[in-house]
Nucleic acid binder design. Structure first.
Length: 161
DNA sequence: TAGGCCATCTGGTCCT
DNA sequence: AGGACCAGATGGCCTA
């Protein structure tokens, strides 16, 4: 967080104390980049333009493909259609929605895009909450909790000035 | 090695 | 009918 004006510097030092005092975040003993950053250098799949900035696209895709292969034996009742198993597998389902493999794949792509936009929002939120530069990347739950505390802190600050 | 975190797939439900 | 949203399941990666 870079702030230039005197007021901003005051707020900035306050924020540093705020972050230091917080018990919410457990600061790591080591501040080195983990091997996960190496994974981030894996080139994106050229076939999917929506995943250009997704760090774990490659391994996730491989994982997903394997998962899909494992489940295909149970879920695919034919060469090109998926059948719903119902809420508990054996109970009678209200509506059985039959979709084609193409529809299932399209739904998977939509879901990936949806999760990607969700993660973009998390990244934006990470940039808004104060952390030390050398701190490890906040997890999603840590980001949410820190944002809650940060908003409460700033609200109190405004009310008391 | 266990646990945390994450990406993805999947099917159910809701909404347009 | 089809898309959005959600939660459960699964497996990989990383760290203590």
């Amino acid at each position: 967080m870079i702030l230039d004006s005197p007021e901003s510097r005051l707020v900035d030092s306050t924020l540093i104390n705020f972050v230091s005092d917080m018990n919410l975040i457990e600061f790591p003993q080591k501040y080195t980049l983990g091997p996960k950053q190496q994974v981030d250098n894996i080139p994106p799949s050229p076939s999917d333009q929506t995943r250009l900035n997704d760090s774990s696209w490659s391994r996730g895709l491989e994982n997903g493909v394997r998962t899909a292969e494992l489940r295909a034996e149970h879920l695919v009742m034919g060469p090109s259609r998926y059948y719903s198993r119902g809420a508990h597998g054996h109970t009678k389902s209200k509506r059985r929605r039959i979709i084609t493999v193409v529809q299932r794949q399209a739904a998977n792509v939509r879901e990936r895009k949806r999760m990607f936009s969700l993660n973009e929002a998390f990244d934006e939120l990470r940039r808004k909450v104060p952390t030390f530069a050398y701190e490890k990347r906040l997890s999603r739950i840590e980001t949410l909790r820190l944002a809650i505390v940060y908003i409460s802190f700033m609200t109190d600050l405004l009310e008391n000035t």
